[in-house]
Structure formats: C-alpha cells, structure tokens
C-alpha cells in the first residue's frame, strides 16, 4: 500500500473574474521512503497540490488517502492526527518564521498544538528534549533556541523551518521550493541536510520545485505539471534519458546548463492564464507538435511501461 494515494484531485477557486482551475484531476502515488518531485512553471498547480494534500486549501473534488485513510472526509480530530504525520517546509525562510518568537517557542508550538509531552513539568521537559534534539540534528547549536529569527542567515532560518517540520516526527514532508530563496552554496548544504534527515528519520518527501537540476538530483520520481494537469510522470533517471512530452523537453532545453551549449530556440509564446485555459491540450498553443486534434481533444495519460506516462497525442 502506498503511503499517500491521490486520485483525480481538483482544486478550483472562485474569483470575482471567474473560476480558476488551479488543479484539475491530478492522481499520484507516493511509496514510503520515496521522494517524488513535482516540477513546473508558474500556474501549473504545484503549490496548490501541496497545500491541497494537507488541506490547507480545500480540494473541490477527488480523494486523498494517507496510510489507507481518506483525508478528504476525515473528522477534525482525524485531520489533526494526519497533520502531525504530514508536515510542510516552505520556500521563504524570512516570511514563514514569526519574528517575535524565539526559536524555542517556534519549535515548541507544534508540540503543544498536538499535545505532545503532556502537561506539567514532565511534559515541558519532554518537549525541551525533543526541541534540543531536532535543533542539533539540523546542524544548529542548542544556544540558538534562545535567539530570534532575525539573528540568523537565510540558510540557518531554513534549517529552523526544517526543524519545525521535523519536530513532530512526521512520516511525510511536503517541501515547497525549499531551496529556491537560498544562495547556491547554501542550497547544497540544505539539500544535503534534507537528504540526511530522510535517511535518519525514514521520511518520505513531496519535493515541489521549478528548478529541474535540483529535482534531478534530489528525487526518485518526477511529475511534470502544466496548467493544473500532469503532463508526464516517470522515474527520475528515465525522465532524463527519454523525456516523452514536448513540454518536458522544452523545459529541459530552456534551462541554461554550463555543461551544454544551447542548441534549441526557446519555445514560443507565454504561459496562458489558468483562468483562461486553452481548449483541448493545454500546451497546444506553444507546442511544436500540435495538430488540429490537439486543439479539440485533451490527451489522456498514456502508459509507456517502466512507470513512465505522458499526456500527448503525438508520442
């Protein structure tokens, strides 16, 4: 049984200017111990997917099952238990830590919310023990606990953000662009930390990123999204050896890479607004392979074997 199983999940927002179909019929399975990358550009729905899984935004349709239990119909108490086991690391280490709380308070809050350690002196001691343990694991000193977010660099703050997610000893961590706001030398440190924590604590990750090179390094499997839909899904090595979908290929070609001279002209056109989706295949206005069929019929995901599937009429 998969740790997380999502079927036909849709999240639509109603805006004054019309409906926004941020996420439209997305399915995925995540095995325990696996890292699944979600990659795509603005408006592809990758962040909405992460938030919908934790029900930080309410999905409009579809099912999410975690460890065999349906999260979309669960009770409030069940939801609280689920969130203890599924945590999130955010992109911006400056915006996601309360500047007026000490690091100890920031890291203790999730434990109090979830009633860990119990009441009285014993509970407090237990919470302190856990907080001190996690802060050392992420590579900070225990002295850091009595300082405030502004006293730390961006990389250290992201370590604190990771500690906050891990202090509850979750099974699943959703990382939403966890290294995008960090300098290059700090990115490597942070990715290595996430890798160590995964091995030490037996975590599973959903790793949301726009950065293909980071996704290639850090994931076992990748889902490529475009305007709310999955266009391709494959084991990481396979996706890079034989990318099928024209959008996947365009995305890979667009990333400037020191190891490679540019060979392809960038794909034309702008990303359409998710409020005004193209008919048929959502990629057709920018696609070099598009035909009449693509403008009318939305292609289903085709299975290529070896765990790879792509949604294109022409592959």
């Amino acid at each position: 049984m998969s740790l997380l199983s999502i079927s036909e999940l849709s999240t639509h927002f109603r805006l004054p200017s019309g409906a926004l179909r941020a996420l439209d019929g997305v399915s995925l399975d995540l095995e325990a111990g696996e890292t699944l990358g979600i990659v795509g550009e603005s408006g592809c729905g990758k962040s909405t997917l992460g938030k919908s899984i934790l029900r930080l935004v309410e999905p409009s349709a579809g099912a999410i099952s975690f460890d065999g239990e349906d999260i979309t119909t669960i009770s409030q108490r069940g939801l609280a238990l689920f969130r203890r086991r599924a945590q999130m690391v955010f992109q911006d280490p400056f915006a996601s830590l309360n500047p007026r709380h000490s690091i100890r308070k920031i890291l203790t809050a999730p434990l109090i919310v979830h009633g860990i350690g119990g009441s009285g002196k014993v509970g407090k001691a237990e919470r302190n023990r856990r907080v001190e343990d996690i802060v050392r694991r992420v590579g900070l000193e225990v002295e850091a606990l009595d300082r405030y977010p502004h006293e730390f660099s961006g990389g250290q703050r992201q370590r604190i953000g990771i500690a906050r997610a891990l202090v509850l000893q979750p099974d699943l961590v959703i990382c939403d662009e966890p290294v995008s706001a960090l300098d290059l030398s700090i990115q490597a440190q942070t990715l290595n930390l996430l890798g160590r924590m995964k091995a030490d604590l037996g975590l599973s990750y959903i790793f949301i990123s726009h950065d293909l090179s980071v996704v290639r390094y850090f994931t076992d499997r990748v889902m490529v999204m475009y305007l709310g839909r999955v266009v391709e899904s494959a084991p990481t090595r396979q996706l890079w050896s034989t990318p099928r979908h024209p959008y996947t290929r365009a995305l890979m070609d667009a990333v400037p890479d020191p190891a490679r001279r540019r060979h392809a002209a960038p794909i034309r056109g702008d990303l359409p607004s998710p409020q005004n989706l193209p008919t048929g295949c959502r990629f057709h206005p920018r696609c070099p392979l598009a035909t009449e069929l693509c403008t009318k019929v939305e292609p289903p995901l085709k299975d290529f074997g070896n765990g790879q599937s792509a949604a294109c009429h022409h592959v």
Partner: peptide, 23 residues
C-alpha cells in the same frame, strides 16, 4: 556544489559538495 542538469548524479549516489559556512 551546484546540481547539474546534464549530470545523472542523484542523492542516492551521495551528498552534494558543500562549501561550509556562509558569506
């Protein structure tokens, strides 16, 4: 320290090179 797009090096193979500390 930078993961390269043209490189199949994966976290399974080992950690990335790290420059210690910060600027």
């Amino acid at each position: 320290a930078s993961p390269r797009l043209g490189d199949s090096y994966n976290y399974i193979d080992g950690p990335l090179y790290e420059i210690p500390g910060s600027i």
